[in-house]
Amino acid sequence: MNARVRRGLAAFAALALTAPALVAQGPDPLARLDSSTRALVLALEDSARAEGLPAEAVLSKAQEGVAKHAPMAAIARAVRTVFLSYREARATLGAKADRTELSAGAAALQAGIPTTALSDLRASGHGKSIAVPLVVLADLVTRGVPRDVASHTILQLWTAGAGDADLLDLPKAVGQDILSGAAPGDALLNRARTIPLRLPPGKVPE
């Protein structure tokens, strides 16, 4: 076998070994970012990985920004917010918080919910996942319900044993009341009053 044939076989073997890996990688999800935003996303991904946080949340926010044709500055701001909110959620909810709770906690913090609301929910969770109350909290604040009213009401309902389904019905109902002219805080309080009636006696919050 002459040298030319050997080189050809070596090149073919190298290509055969690397091609599947290259194909599996697919197009670069960050290809549409400018160099500084891309560097920031990669750095935050690395930091998240090093801290045991879900790095894909950072990447996902960057992909979302690209898909929505957001300006680079907005993407950079959003991925930084996501990373910091996950870090804060982990610090507040503890190392035992699972990924679902962590995502919900990060969403709540991004909506402006104070960390005390997260720790209060965690303390009264009786071991149950607090993902749904946190997601509902984030929604209510997004709809204009004052943070303290939303935090206090959801905590009361949660402490009284309201289920995930009860809480998940709240955003739509509150949203309808707001559109009908109710103040967001009043809308939540009115709707929240209908939930304890379905709870067992003794579980009704004061």
Partner: peptide, 16 residues
């Protein structure tokens, strides 16, 4: 679906 701001001047739905 519950919603939250997406950081890009819009909102996203949230699924649990």
């Amino acid at each position: 679906t519950p919603t939250m701001r997406d950081g890009f001047n819009g909102e996203v739905g949230v699924l649990v």
